[in-house]
């Protein structure tokens, strides 16, 4: 049999776009998402400026930004942001570690699943905020109870997603691993881990979102600094601009941290073959 007989076989010439390997799509059109918020902000600014709207309860963007700048200039903003970031970071880390460990264990070992899963599922049905009084009694009102509350919120989506994803790994691919005599750890590292990575990354992002949600609850329960404290402070002093400044802070920080997580995982997930694969 000669090469010319295999007529349908594509050559590098026939498929120039493939010759360079997997392609990247250009990052066009992302800016479109900015149109709606920009129009809304400018519209409200103009409405208040022309006296058509009342800026007392909902201050215009310029006043919110001015408040934000004042906070920044006094150095308070950095203190608040760092306090909140530290709590989210520590809580997220603890939640991810615990969720990954238990999720991997229960997904991989049936024994562990039988042992832990019923208890964890029962605990999951308790709204996490309900733990707050107990945490305060046990760990005091300061950082420990806050970090633990956030960790609890982060834990469950990661635990659930990882243990489910491991159980769902294609049996046929695991069999290929067996045929090549992979050991347990090798199977985890070379088959289970990459196969579950897409769900795991999604779970990390969902967990981070919950982390940001729970940090507000944690800071509501008594704090002298942090963006959540700023929210309470704005309410107490009747200053909506402060509240909005804190909300803006949450939005920006949440978006940035999620974006970092997504960007860090994107190179690892380029193989995905989904409907509109995009991280």
């Amino acid at each position: 049999m000669t090469a010319t007989e295999r007529l349908y076989e594509p050559t590098a010439d026939a498929l120039p776009s493939l010759a360079g390997g997997p392609r990247r799509r250009p990052g066009l059109g992302r800016a479109v998402g900015l149109i709606v918020p920009a129009v809304l902000a400018l519209g409200w600014e103009a409405a208040v400026a022309t006296g058509w709207g009342d800026g007392r309860l909902l201050p215009p963007p310029s006043r919110v930004l001015a408040t934000l700048y004042a906070l920044y200039a006094s150095g308070d903003l950095v203190t608040h942001v760092l306090a909140t970031l530290w709590r989210v970071g520590a809580g997220f880390l603890c939640g991810v570690l615990a969720g990954t460990l238990l999720g991997a264990l229960t997904g991989y070992l049936t024994v562990a699943r039988r042992l832990f899963d019923p208890t964890l599922q029962a605990l999951r049905s308790i709204p996490s905020i309900a733990w707050v009084p107990l945490f305060i009694l046990w760990f005091g009102i300061f950082e420990t109870s806050k970090v633990i509350l956030i960790a609890v919120g982060v834990f469950f989506p990661i635990y659930l997603a990882l243990s489910g994803a491991i159980m769902d790994v294609d049996r046929k691919l695991v069999e290929v691993g067996r045929m090549f005599r992979l050991s347990g750890p090798q199977l985890v590292w070379r088959v289970l881990l990459p196969a579950t990575l897409p769900s795991y990354v999604l779970a990390l992002r969902a967990g981070l979102g919950l982390g940001w949600m729970f940090v507000v609850a944690a800071e509501f329960m008594g704090a002298s600094e942090g963006l959540g404290f700023l929210l309470v402070d704005g309410q107490m002093t009747g200053n909506p601009a402060t509240i909005l400044a804190a909300i803006l802070g949450f939005a920006v920080l949440g978006k940035i941290t999620d974006g970092l997580l997504a960007a860090a995982s994107r190179p690892l997930l380029r193989w995905q073959d989904g409907f509109k694969t995009e991280a």
Partner: peptide, 21 residues
Amino acid sequence: ASPREEIGFVFQEPRLMPWLS
């Protein structure tokens, strides 16, 4: 008794790891 290096297997489906080139 268990898979061996000197035995290769080709399945009905390619079973390639989608995350590897």
